[in-house]
Design a protein around this nucleic acid. Structure first.
Length: 144
DNA sequence: TACCACGTAAAT
DNA sequence: ATTTACGTGGTA
């Protein structure tokens, strides 16, 4: 079963492999769902796996589905960290200066928990973006 | 990689 | 109904 390559043409060799076991398959389910449930990408990956007789990426089991629904929810500030306890906007950060169009809380008041990525929980947003991009690297341009 | 813009969920 | 600000895409 040839692993799909090409597409964006920027992928390191080992960026994408089919899941080796059920745990990894579920991890991929999480990533896929986080990216987009009904995208052509999802259908493509699903088809690839079925064709290869590997772990299917769907349907999601009930508990995993519940987990994913939780992840989709907008997170709330913890209310306990230093930034959360701060009452005043600094008035000088980019978010304060760009309040009208930016719609972001003052940087000094941004909850420590919310600074972390919702995608993987504990990685910087940029890393999260990279993780998402990696999913697309292996795909042909017709899919991306 | 920080900043900007925007849709919209959630709070008020 | 209005306000706040999360999540995400785009860009300089």
């Amino acid at each position: 079963m040839p692993r799909p390559k090409g597409g964006m043409g920027l992928a390191p060799e080992n960026v994408y492999e089919f899941p080796a076991d059920m745990e990894e398959a579920q991890s991929l389910q999480l990533q896929r769902k986080c990216i987009e449930t009904t995208s052509p990408l999802s259908k493509y990956i699903e088809a690839e796996h079925q064709e290869a007789g590997l772990f299917s990426l769907s349907p999601l089991d009930a508990s995993l589905e519940a987990t994913l629904d939780l992840q989709k929810k907008r997170r709330k500030k913890c209310g306990a960290c230093t930034p959360c306890l701060r009452k005043e906007n600094c008035g000088t950060c980019a978010n304060c200066l760009n309040r009208k169009t930016g719609k972001q809380i003052c940087k000094l008041r941004k909850c420590e928990q919310l600074k972390k990525s919702a995608f993987h929980g504990n990685v910087h947003r940029t890393s999260s973006r990279e993780a998402q991009k990696q999913f697309f690297f292996c795909l042909p341009e017709s899919v991306c």
